[in-house]
Amino acid sequence: MTMLPWAGVLRSRRGVAAVEFAITATVLLSILFGIIAFASTLYAYNMMEAGVSEAARRMAVAEANYSASNITCGAGASNTAGTAENIACRSLPKWGTYTVNASLNCTSPARDAVVTLTANSSTLALADMYRRIYNTNLVAKATYRREGTCP
């Protein structure tokens, strides 16, 4: 009986483990990298929330100066120490870039110190997916009432 040339290959059980590994690794690694991406993004978001809150509070008690324009921070970008922007940005993870905006709204009766941080979606793992789903960037914003005089 003449055997087909590739029949032996089909019957061979060598390499089964490698093939199974290839298939299961796809699933396991997607889960693993998914966890890492999710965790890193959420960590960044948490630090953004904490940053804007602290910065707005410091502005509210007139301890921190601010610049009226948008400032890019993170990933090595620096800004003047002690400003609201610096306080908002200083604890952010370095793998992302962010845009920070601080403003003081003294139009009566409002006396709001507002700090907003927007994550650059291309630099944070899941922020881009978030932007595609919700059509908005990851934004952290805090508003505190300004104490004392509102210039």
């Binding site: 959420l42 978001y45 948490n46 929330e49 904490a50 809150s53 509070r57 009432r145 104490e147």
Partner: peptide
Amino acid sequence: ASYVYWHRTKLQETANAAALA
């Protein structure tokens, strides 16, 4: 769990802002 932690941070920061205001 991390979502709840994030939410709690947010809630606490908001509580601080509200109490001070």
